[in-house]
C-alpha cells in the first residue's frame, strides 16, 4: 500500500527556440514542471512534483521544427491512490449531494449516502451537512478519515479522474466524531 513514490523518468523535452537565450537548466526544469506535473500514469499514478534533474542529454534538432529536443532524466514524486486504502483528508467543499475531500494532489468525492447511517440535511446557508437524529455536522475544513472505494484514473484527461470515498464503517468519519465516540467509550467502559 503506497500513496506516494519516487520514480526516475527519462523523457524528451522540447525547448522552443524563443527560450534559447536563457539558462538551459532553468528552462528545462521549468518545461518539465509545465509538462509533467499533473500527468497521470496508470502504473505510477500522478506526478506531483519534479524533485531533481539528473541528466540532460545532447540536444537534437529535427527537420521541420525550430525546437531543440533534449533527453532528460529526472526524479519525480508520484501520488497513487490505492483501492480500499484508509486515508485522512480535509473537506474542501460541501455540496448538495455530499462533500469533496482533498487527499493532497487529488480530491475525492464523499457522497451523501456514504457519510453516516443517519439521514443528512444540507444546510445551504452555513454550507454544512447535518445529521437528522444525531445532529452531527460536517463542514469545510474538517479532517476526515475515509476509505477509497472507487477509483478511475484517466491518463489522457487527468482532470476527469475520479476517486470515490466512504465513511460508513466503524472508526471512519470526521476526526471530531471519532474523538467523541472514543471519549464515550472510555467513560462508559
Amino acid at each position: 500500500m503506497l500513496m506516494y513514490g519516487r520514480i526516475k523518468v527519462r523523457d524528451t523535452v522540447r525547448v522552443p527556440p524563443d527560450k534559447l537565450g536563457e539558462n538551459l537548466d532553468e528552462i528545462i526544469e521549468e518545461l518539465l514542471w509545465e509538462n509533467f506535473e499533473g500527468r497521470i500514469d496508470k502504473e505510477y499514478g500522478m506526478i506531483v512534483c519534479i524533485e531533481s534533474i539528473e541528466e540532460i542529454g545532447e540536444g537534437k534538432i529535427i527537420e521541420g521544427d525550430g525546437g531543440i529536443y533534449f533527453d532528460v532524466v529526472f526524479n519525480a514524486i508520484t501520488f497513487k491512490p490505492v483501492m480500499q486504502e484508509v486515508v485522512e483528508g480535509v473537506v474542501s467543499e460541501i455540496v448538495e449531494f455530499g462533500a469533496f475531500v482533498s487527499l493532497g494532489p487529488l480530491d475525492g468525492l464523499l457522497h451523501m449516502s456514504q457519510i453516516t447511517d443517519d439521514y443528512l440535511n444540507y444546510d445551504e446557508k452555513s454550507k454544512r451537512l447535518i445529521g437528522k437524529e444525531s445532529r452531527r455536522t460536517i463542514e469545510e475544513g474538517d479532517i476526515v478519515r475515509v476509505r477509497i472505494v472507487a477509483l478511475s484514473l484517466r491518463e489522457k484527461e487527468p482532470e476527469k479522474s475520479k476517486i470515490g470515498l466512504t465513511m460508513r464503517q466503524p472508526w471512519l468519519g470526521a476526526m471530531k466524531w471519532i474523538q467523541e465516540d472514543k471519549e464515550k467509550l472510555e467513560s462508559g467502559g
Binding site: L20, G21, E22, N23, L24, D25, E58, G59, K60, I61, E63, I68
Partner: peptide, 21 residues
C-alpha cells in the same frame, strides 16, 4: 517520410550553450 540522403542524412546536435547573448 524524410529520406536519408543529402541534407536528410545530416544529424544536427546542439553545442551546449549556456547563458544568453
Amino acid at each position: 517520410q524524410p529520406i536519408k540522403l543529402g541534407t536528410g542524412d545530416v544529424e544536427l546536435r546542439v553545442k551546449l550553450f549556456t547563458g544568453g547573448d
